[in-house]
Design a protein around this nucleic acid. Structure first.
Ligand SMILES: [Mn+2]
Ligand SMILES: [Mn+2]
Ligand SMILES: [Zn+2]
Ligand SMILES: [Zn+2]
Lengths: 148, 148
DNA sequence: ACTATAATGCAACTTAGTTGCAATAATTTA
DNA sequence: TAAATTATTGCAACTAAGTTGCATTATAGT
């Protein structure tokens, strides 16, 4: 993706265009897997990103709905941009994650984002008991193609 | 649940019976929601549990398959005992979580465990791509009956 | 009761992320 | 294009959650 396209995405989410945001956005858009703060730091070591600035950049992306984060069992967060979220935002201006699952590899701990069909889960029981469900998230555990 | 029943559960999971384990087990069995380290500390303040001992107790419960833990978006863990896991263990001696979902209340951050039907998700796409799925976890986000 | 082994409790440590604040860069306006 | 406005950046210090090491104590089998 070229520089002008990346800038356009930031502007669509009402974010100022900065060097840090551009390179982080570019990286996350290219990555098939969700990435941690330290993975991003390593991948972008040429930029010598400041630790705090990167955290703030990632949080900002999540706040505006451009990226989403997944808490791992190793008590840290992985960040990902799900391409449909970027496109959806173009059309309808409110942030709402597209339905997708997270595949967590037990061997390498990588997390992959996957498209899934909407509303596949039978939630009658929960709804009967007075729980109102706004959104759901599916986590798959197993072995990824690389580790198999 | 009486003391003898609690001891019996610990023995079935090959754990030594101790004061700390008994009171934590008792609490988690009674709780509808998954509980954090600090919630447990507060609930059992009469026992003046040591911080480290409680962490170790919870980790042990998870290791043997008596309890399970859920990572929250606030980067901490909540622990829960899903009653079917305790019963299942009686019969078949290998630890395998019963299918259930986690409901996360956006208002109070509480996490409830819910029974669900097995295999409700269409995983063809993932499997075609070479991902082998061993287990899945469903997270529901919304508002719980108390907060509504 | 004696012994072997595992659980406990305390202090120190680690890891991941946050807060405050001054310096700097991005956009608006003239 | 320069000045003014406002948001982002980078550094140091801090926090919260959980872990490690080690000496002490409790459990369970004989
Ligand atoms: Mn995702
Ligand atoms: Mn559960
Ligand atoms: Zn893998
Ligand atoms: Zn609630």
């Amino acid at each position: 993706m070229n520089d002008e396209q990346l800038k356009q995405i930031l502007r669509e989410f009402d974010l100022k265009v900065t060097k840090v945001r551009l390179c982080v956005l570019d990286l996350l858009l290219q990555s098939r897997i969700a990435m941690s703060h330290s993975q991003i730091t390593d991948a972008l070591e040429a930029f010598e990103l400041d630790k705090v600035t990167l955290y703030r950049t990632l949080n900002t992306f999540v706040e505006v709905g451009l990226a989403h984060k997944v808490a791992t069992d190793e008590r840290n967060w992985l960040y990902a941009i799900y391409s449909e979220d970027v496109q959806q935002h173009n059309h309808q201006h409110e942030h709402h994650e597209s339905p997708h699952a997270h595949f967590i590899c037990e061997a390498c701990d990588k997390i992959y984002c996957f498209p899934i069909e909407e509303k596949q889960i039978d939630l009658k029981k929960a709804e009967l008991e007075g729980f109102s469900i706004k959104q759901h998230e599916i986590r798959l555990h197993g072995t990824c193609p690389v580790c198999k």
